[in-house]
Design a protein around this nucleic acid. Structure first.
Lengths: 335, 335
DNA sequence: TTGTATGCGTTATCAG
DNA sequence: CTGATAACGCATACAA
């Protein structure tokens, strides 16, 4: 049994294909009665329009491509949820393209790829608009950046500067020497995010404001092992000082903070006393482990990104818009 | 400037569209000379065929859908790599659909979704063929299961039974009492994987074979927090026993093993002496932390899955085939 | 070996 | 308001 086409529906409803198409797209007034008939036929035949044909016909395919870094973190799961919810309401489908490495990106940029054939593009964390430009790949589709910021397209972003500031301001109120751990992200010129850079700027600004400064800073790449090693190195260094403890550490990602908590525990240090730790992300486990951290409204950010894109798809033509979201500090036992 | 179509190429090359299409699809003999001309025209115009049009024309879209669980683990990154490599060689594109929850699955199953419109389907870890059947959604596309096993479709899977057996056989040679930690996966009837069940079966069989048995078993869901809590509970229990140490623990996933290593360290237990730990996965950090574990040829498994699907796409009609891969034990310091 | 015509499922245009 | 019919970009039988 073949899948029903718009022809079948038209026949079943005793109308022309044009009419069916019109009810499908909520077009110009269709007589309520005939609309009902068509809707019933659609239901009867369990018909769903073919997105490829839609796209071919010059219409829309009702699919959005999402380009994002490898999804090994909770952040992107939450982000996808926010995006999904918004797009689903608007009856759009999502196709996800994890940017594993540069060669994958190259392929996505080849215009034959589905990624490039969707009605709209969501780029998460990375700002690839530059690349598109260089390749003279004028993006015909509207694009929105999420978790990243640029002047020349819509974006929905977290204010990591404020996040860093909040962390710094809070850290400044705590006793003992100050340390910070940052995330290394310069894998490749293309794959660069300013997220951690901004957290750092904000953090330092707040510290300066309070007349304090960090004793030392550390950098780790974003993986379990690096987090552990850095935690070890940091606490080794602190322990080697005359009066290293108490100290306060701002770890710019919960992954790093978690490793620090582990390491502190191994050394018999009391959290919130010998060592105070501030994370960033508010991962699902943060509450249970009592980690003081910055919570980000990730879903909301994704949802908003979707709205921005949907308005463009709806025909909105205006200057690029930027929706800013603020993280907020959640104080728990670790500090 | 519009993107070039097959018409433009034909015109530019001074041939008919049919000829262009033929060279595009490596069809029946095209005179080498004209083939060259066409190829040059294609290059000149930077032409790439429109996948939607291809699909509509009754042909193929050269895209494969991959349905997989949320990508928060290294396993799926590696799997995707294997799949990508194989499909790329065959000039197929991949669209990834993370199965966040049941409602998402429902939507993917709605036939209008792109997921369902691809030339082929790869289902990772979960066997969704049952669901397809129940819905009477006869999958028109060829489907391959990876990291899962079923009788009625091609699959490329890891022999987790053997993995468990290897772990059990090795554990049986170690001194002290035996413990095991399993992963809870029964989130939903749909989302069920037999992976851990099989590891368990193999493990017990090997133990029995060696005339040994586990003192106690534990179950944790697959997340950092649960892993920690279980590790704590397990070591608490062991410590409460008269002669609990030395002991050996088979953690059926490296995530769990890592948590155990942490916890053991906190308690001042010596790994490979007081506590011996065997993991499963060989995560990137396992070597550095000296974790004895089962290594899986994940990329190879993905690559093979792709080959199976490609052969079906190439017209192969035969009974379902199953490609089996074996994990192997890597002994390190933790045991 | 190659060009032409037809069809794929929709949307959009245009008469009615 | 609605029904034909022409695109859309491509593959493919069919004819040459």
């Amino acid at each position: 049994m073949k899948t029903p086409t718009i022809q079948d529906v038209a026949q079943h409803a005793g109308v022309g294909v044009g009419t069916v198409s019109r009810v499908l797209n909520n077009h110009t007034a269709v007589k309520p009665a005939t609309r009902e008939t068509v809707l019933k036929a659609i239901a009867d035949l369990n018909y769903t329009p073919n997105p490829h044909a839609r796209r071919i016909a010059g219409g829309k395919s009702y699919t959005i491509s999402v380009l994002l870094p490898v999804l090994t973190t909770e952040f992107y799961a939450r982000l996808l949820n926010g995006l999904e919810n918004a797009f689903q309401e608007a009856r759009y489908d999502l196709a996800i393209f994890p940017l594993l490495d540069r060669s994958r990106l190259e392929r996505y940029l080849a215009s034959h790829t589905l990624a490039y054939q969707a009605d709209g593009l969501v780029m998460a964390t990375y700002n690839l608009t530059k690349v598109f430009h260089e390749r003279r790949l004028q993006t015909r589709q509207p694009t929105v950046l999420v978790d990243a910021y640029t002047d020349d397209s819509d974006c929905s972003y977290m204010d990591n500067l404020t996040g860093g500031t909040l962390a710094g301001a809070y850290a400044a109120t705590l006793p003992g020497t100050l340390y910070a751990v940052w995330v290394e992200t310069e894998l490749d010129q293309l794959f660069t995010t300013r997220v951690f850079e901004e957290r750092r700027t904000g953090f330092h600004a707040a510290l300066e404001q309070a007349g304090r400064r960090v004793e030392a800073e550390y950098t780790a790449s974003f993986d379990t092992l690096a987090a552990r090693n850095t935690a070890t190195a940091l606490l080794d260094d602190v322990a080697a000082k005359a009066n290293g403890f108490p100290c306060t550490v701002f770890a710019s990602a919960d992954l790093l903070a978690g490793a620090l908590m582990d390491e502190a525990r191994v050394r018999g240090l009391t959290l919130g006393q010998d060592v105070r730790i501030i994370g960033f992300d508010d991962q699902p486990w943060a509450a249970a482990r009592g980690l003081t951290t910055l919570h980000q409204p990730v879903e909301a950010m994704g949802y908003e990104a979707a709205q921005l894109l949907l308005s463009r798809l709806g025909g909105y033509r205006g200057p690029p818009r930027a929706s800013r979201f603020e993280p907020h500090l959640i104080v728990r036992d670790s500090s």
